[in-house]
C-alpha cells in the first residue's frame, strides 16, 4: 500500500510517499529531505500520537469551563473516545494550574490536567 503524507517535523513540510506492506510495516520512504522525515513517517504509520487539548465543565468557577490538555501525547485513534469521557465530567472549583482532573484517561496511562487556574 502507498500512503501520502506531509512531514511536519520542520517547517519545510516535505511531501512523503510511504510504501507499506500488509502488516502496516514501512518498506520505503521517499520525498524526505532529511532523516527526520523517515522517522516521522515510521511514527505516523506505526503509532501516530497527538496532544489533545479541550475544555472541561466547572462547577462554582468564575467561568463555565476550564482548559485542559493530555499530560502526554495519546494515540491519535483515541482522541474521540477521550473527548467523550472529558465531556461527561464536571469538576469543582477551585482548580490549580497543572492539577490532574482525570487520571489514566481511556487506559492510555495519560492524565487530563488543567492548563489554567480558576
Amino acid at each position: 500500500m502507498i500512503k501520502e503524507m506531509t512531514c511536519v517535523a520542520c517547517p519545510l513540510g516535505c511531501q512523503l510517499t510511504v510504501e507499506l506492506n500488509d502488516k502496516n510495516e514501512v518498506l520505503s520512504v521517499t520525498g524526505n529531505t532529511c532523516k527526520r522525515g523517515e522517522q516521522y513517517a515510521h511514527d505516523e504509520c506505526t503509532n501516530p500520537v497527538r496532544m489533545l487539548t479541550t475544555t472541561i465543565k466547572v462547577n462554582g468557577g468564575s467561568l463555565p469551563v476550564i482548559p485542559v490538555k493530555t499530560s502526554a501525547p495519546i494515540p491519535k485513534g483515541k482522541m474521540f473516545d477521550c473527548m467523550k469521557v472529558i465531556n461527561s465530567e464536571v469538576v469543582d472549583a477551585p482548580i490549580k494550574m497543572g492539577e490532574v482532573l482525570i487520571s489514566n484517561i481511556c487506559d492510555t496511562g495519560v492524565d487530563i490536567v488543567a492548563t489554567n487556574e480558576m
Binding site: 496532544m51 487539548t53 479541550t54 475544555t55 482548559p67 490538555k69 494550574m97 492548563t115 489554567n116 487556574e117
Partner: peptide, 22 residues
C-alpha cells in the same frame, strides 16, 4: 488559545496559550 504549540522557542517546551500567559 487553549491548544498547544506556544513556547517551543522561548521555553523549549510546548505550552498551551493560557500556560504561556500564566
Amino acid at each position: 488559545c487553549i491548544h498547544t504549540g506556544f513556547g517551543l522557542h522561548h521555553f523549549g517546551e510546548e505550552l498551551s496559550g493560557p500556560e504561556y500567559a500564566y
